[in-house]
Computed example of a mutant assay.
Amino acid sequence: MVESKNKYVLLAVMFIALLLFPTLGFDFYNDMVSRIVILALFAVSLDLLVGYAGLISFGHAAWFGVGAYAFALLSTHYQVTDSFWITLPVALIAAAVLSFIVGLFVLRTKGIYFIMVTLAFAQVFYFLVHDVPAIGGSTDGLNLYARPTLEIGNWVLLDLENPLTMYYFILAALFFSVVLLWFFLRSPLGRAVQGIKINEHRMLSIGFPVFRYKLIVFVIASVFASLAGYLFAAQSYGVNPELLSWHKSADVLLMLIFGGMGQFVGGIVGAFAFILLKDVFMTYTDWWQLWLGITIVLFVLFLPGGLASLPSRFKALVGKA
Rank of each mutant, 00 (worst) to 15 (best):
Ala233Met: 05
Tyr237Lys: 05
Gly238Ser: 15
Val239Thr: 10
Asn240Thr: 06
Pro241Asp: 07
Trp246Glu: 03
His247Cys: 06
His247Phe: 05
His247Leu: 12
Ser249Gly: 09
Asp251Gln: 10
Val252Ser: 10
Leu253Met: 14
Leu254Trp: 01
Leu254Gly: 12
Ile257Thr: 13
Phe258Pro: 09
Met261His: 03
Gly262Ala: 06
Phe264Val: 05
Val265Tyr: 00
Val265Gln: 01
Val265Arg: 01
Gly266Glu: 11
Val269Ala: 12
Gly270Glu: 07
Ala271Ile: 04
Ile275Gly: 05
Leu277Phe: 08
Asp279Lys: 03
Met282Glu: 13
Asp286Val: 15
Trp288Met: 08
Trp288Thr: 13
Gln289Ala: 09
Gln289Cys: 02
Gln289Leu: 09
Leu290Met: 09
Leu292Gly: 11
Ile294Gly: 14
Thr295Trp: 01
Thr295Ile: 11
Leu298Gly: 11
Phe302His: 07
Leu303Asp: 13
Leu303Asn: 13
Leu303Pro: 08
Pro304Met: 12
Gly306Glu: 11
Leu307Cys: 09
Ala308Lys: 07
Ser309Lys: 06
Ser309Asp: 13
Pro311Lys: 00
Pro311Trp: 00
Pro311Gly: 00
Ser312Asp: 14
Ser312His: 03
Arg313Met: 10
Phe314Gln: 00
Ala316Val: 01
Leu317Ala: 11
Lys320Gly: 07
Ala321His: 13
Ala321Ile: 13
